[in-house]
Computed example of a mutant assay.
Amino acid sequence: MAVAATKEPNRLILFTDAVVAIAVTLLVLPLVDVVPEVAREHRPATEVITGHQPEIWTFLLSFAVIIRLWLSHHKAFQHVRAYSTPLVLCNSAWLLAIVVLPFPTEMVGVFDNSRFTTGLYIGTVFVATGLQAAMYLIIRIDPEVASEDTPLPGEFVLGAVTAAVLLLLALVVALTVPGVGYWALLLLLLSGPVEWAWRRRHAVAAA
C-alpha cells in the first residue's frame, strides 16, 4: 500500500512553484552580466541590446518554454487529490530538467548554432516534456491520485505525448540534418493538427 498516496498535494505544488520561479529568475542572470561588460569596454548603452540579441531571444524562448510547462503542470494538478511515490519521483525529475534549462540556454547564446548546444537545449526540453507526459499518465490512470469529481481529461495526456514525440523528432532532425538547428523546433506547430487527427480517428473508431 502506497502511504504517500494518502497525502495532500498542496506541499508538492507549492514546492514545485517555488523551484520553477527560481529557474525562471536564473534565466535572466546572463543578461544582467552583460551590462557591466559593456560598461567596462566603454561601448554605447544600446549595445546591451543590439550586441546581444542571440542571448535575449534565447532568454525569451526559454522563459516561454518554462512558463508553458508550468501552466500545463498547474492545470493538471488541479485534478490531483493526493500524490503517490511515482508522481513525486516524476515531478522531481521534471523539476531537475526545468532547473537545468538555464544552463543550455546560456550556452546557446554563447556558442550559437553548434550541433552540441542545439542537441543539449532541445534534448533538455524534450526530457521535461516527456516527464510531464509521464506525470499526466500517472494522474489519469492511478485511482488513488486522480480526483474523483474532476478526473484529468485525456486531452492533457494527448497534448503532452504529442509534444514529446515532436520534440524527439526535432532533436533527431537538428542532430542529423546540417544547417537546420533550432528551426527544427517549428515541428511543434504540428501538435495541433496531430492532436486533431488523433481525436478524429479515435471518434471514428468508437462510432
Rank of each mutant, 00 (worst) to 15 (best):
V108S: 02
P54C: 06
W183T: 14
Y121G: 02
P178L: 03
I49L: 13
S92R: 07
S147R: 05
S92D: 14
L95M: 12
T124D: 10
V194D: 09
A39G: 04
W183S: 14
A184Y: 02
P151N: 05
I66C: 02
L137I: 09
T6D: 13
T124I: 09
D33V: 12
T162G: 06
V65M: 09
I122W: 00
V99N: 01
L186K: 12
D17H: 04
T85F: 10
E195N: 15
L188E: 07
S114F: 01
P104G: 08
R40N: 15
S147W: 02
V32H: 05
G154S: 12
V127R: 00
V19E: 03
V20S: 03
F103T: 09
A207H: 11
A21C: 06
E106G: 09
V80D: 03
F15I: 11
A207T: 14
I122Y: 02
A45G: 12
V125H: 09
R40G: 12
P151A: 04
L71V: 14
L27V: 08
L168S: 09
V108T: 09
L61V: 10
L69N: 06
L31V: 10
A163G: 02
E106C: 06
L152Y: 04
W94V: 04
N113D: 05
L158M: 12
L185S: 03
A39E: 11
Y136S: 03
A207W: 12
P9A: 06
I66T: 04
Y121Q: 09
A133T: 02
S62M: 10
